[in-house]
């Protein structure tokens, strides 16, 4: 199947996306940001629709919207008690906007489904390179702030009392998250972002007790899902996103079962 250039592109792109998702996902889970991630993906949908409307590449629109709003939400969410309500309001607004942009643009229904459900098999070489650059940027930024990011994510109180500027790292992380959401949306689509950005990491934390190992496992789980998903999609002609979703959910169920069993003994 890798003889086909579109499959090769899909394969390379999804490999990078899976690696980024594993890295970022561990911090999403540690920081309890699954809900925000979901909202960012809806904002990404609006950004994608906006891009279609003005004739940009979808990825650019997504990055623009998610970056802007993650900084905005980051500013607002300093009051944690109100975070969920504010985030819901923001996401409702953006889904509405997305629908508006799509209906204003003369785009056909398929561009909407591509944004919502991903279109990895339709990806071209330029887009592949763009995804690779972005993935490398995300990973480099994470490495550059790794120790502080780890401390603020896994022990916010301890980090604050030892003098780390929590707000700074929270903003840096939100920007990383915005980029990753836009990148991951290219393969699983806006609707299924959390399948790559939270499920593998949420599963990984039941299997190991170190940050680096959790990142490794999360990457492994998302690679497993995307590679197998691509392969199954290729041979059955069913949507790749569907298979990725099923595989990641299955891994998560195994993780929960393992947790239950070890709790019972």
């Amino acid at each position: 199947m890798l003889a086909l250039s579109f499959m090769r592109h899909a394969f390379i792109a999804s490999t990078f996306i899976a690696i980024v998702s594993g890295f970022v996902g561990v911090f999403v889970v540690a920081r309890n940001l699954s809900f925000l991630t979901h909202t960012l993906s809806e904002i990404g949908f609006a950004g994608g629709a906006f891009a279609v409307f003005i004739g940009w590449p979808v990825l650019n629109g997504m990055i623009l919207f998610t970056m802007l709003s993650s900084i905005l939400v980051g500013q607002m969410s300093i009051k944690e008690s109100r975070r969920e309500a504010v985030t819901s309001a923001v996401s409702a607004l953006f889904i509405g906007l997305g629908i508006l942009f799509l209906s204003l643009s003369s785009a056909n229904a398929s561009s909407a489904t591509n944004i919502l459900f991903g279109s990895v098999v339709g990806i071209n070489l330029t887009e592949v390179w763009q995804l690779i650059y972005l993935s490398i940027i995300v990973i480099l930024v994470i490495f550059a702030v790794y120790r502080q990011l780890k401390f603020t994510s896994f022990d916010a109180i301890g980090a604050r009392v030892s003098g780390i500027n929590a707000t700074l790292y929270s903003v840096i992380f939100l920007i990383i998250l915005a980029l990753s959401v836009s990148v991951a949306a290219q393969i699983v689509g806006s609707l299924l972002i959390f399948i790559l950005l939270t499920l593998p990491a949420a599963s990984a934390k039941y299997f190991t007790h170190g940050v680096a190992k959790m990142i490794g496992l999360a990457i492994l789980f998302s690679l497993l899902g995307t590679w197998l998903g691509l392969f199954l999609g290729y041979i059955t002609n069913w949507p790749v996103s569907f298979f990725i979703a099923v595989i990641e959910v299955a891994i998560y169920c195994c993780a929960l079962m393992k947790q239950k069993l070890s709790g019972a003994e």
Partner: peptide, 15 residues
């Protein structure tokens, strides 16, 4: 549900 081991938790403060 806190995932880190005691060792990794302590090691967070290495800077």
């Amino acid at each position: 549900e806190y995932p880190l081991s005691i060792r990794d938790f302590i090691a967070l403060n290495v800077r």
